[in-house]
Design a protein around this nucleic acid. Structure first.
Lengths: 130, 130
DNA sequence: TCTTGACTTGGAGTTAACTCCAAGTTGTAA
DNA sequence: TTACAACTTGGAGTTAACTCCAAGTCAAGA
């Protein structure tokens, strides 16, 4: 699979794919005899993982560390486990944050919808900002 | 309330508080006669909202737009509602992304925990990367 | 009143994560 | 075998969101 195809499949730029490889967020991609990237199944799995991590907001750095451990072999399994657990915590906190903000926005949205229906704002606490 | 106190209360730097004001993410903060910031209840509510939005990953730009609409008065209520709804969608998608990644990481974590217990990795699909 | 520490501003610097560019190479269709 | 699109690289440029700095002002205690 060429870089163009991968880029289209995952809706990510070719530059970003090269960048992920350059900073060692994913292992070196398989090449043709001429040196052109020819993504294999395993390369795609790394790409998917990288995209998944980035889409959820985890830093590139975390993935770089993970790959480095991975490439050092099985004796880094405990370290990898620790790394994954700490990323899980980060995500759990991030999820809570999002839920809190969604709650706040929902409240405002309800107020505004009511305002539009009735023609005036209905505050439940005085001085409240919307 | 001084900028120092606000900064400690919300665990955010004084520079960031001034930055939020400078880029008009929050309205101009109340000042003393001498020109020093003296945060009132309403100022704090804006700060809280700004922090909440930022912590959940929404861009500063969205909050700038929201404040600009807010300051134009009640005729911008439909526009504000639309803006909030679109931010809600962004957050909903972000939350799904996080859940997906958490699922992926959980799977890896389970594999690794098993590996540590039994002394070897147990793959369920061949060629799977961990 | 003087000192000292907290505050002010405008503007420059930093960091993460891309994104773009130029100059050169590869592969395929005519 | 030649044209030409797609690929390659190293490095520079961009963007968002801070973060730091210098030079000056304000305010509370000795």
């Amino acid at each position: 699979m060429t870089i163009k195809e991968v880029s289209e499949k995952y809706n990510i730029s070719q530059d970003t794919l090269r960048y992920y490889e350059r900073v060692k967020m994913i292992p070196e991609v398989t090449r043709t005899a001429g040196g052109i990237r020819d993504y294999q199944e395993e390369d795609l799995r790394w790409v998917e993982l990288a995209i998944c991590m980035r889409n959820s907001g985890l830093p590139v750095e975390a993935m770089i560390e993970y790959l480095a451990l991975f490439q050092k072999g099985d004796e880094t399994i405990p370290a990898r486990l620790e790394l994954l657990n700490s990323q899980m915590e980060v995500l759990a906190r991030q999820k809570e944050q999002i839920e809190e903000t969604m709650g706040r926005l929902s409240y405002k949205i309800e107020r505004y919808e009511e305002a539009i229906k009735t023609g005036k704002l209905t505050w439940t606490k005085k001085g409240e900002i919307l």
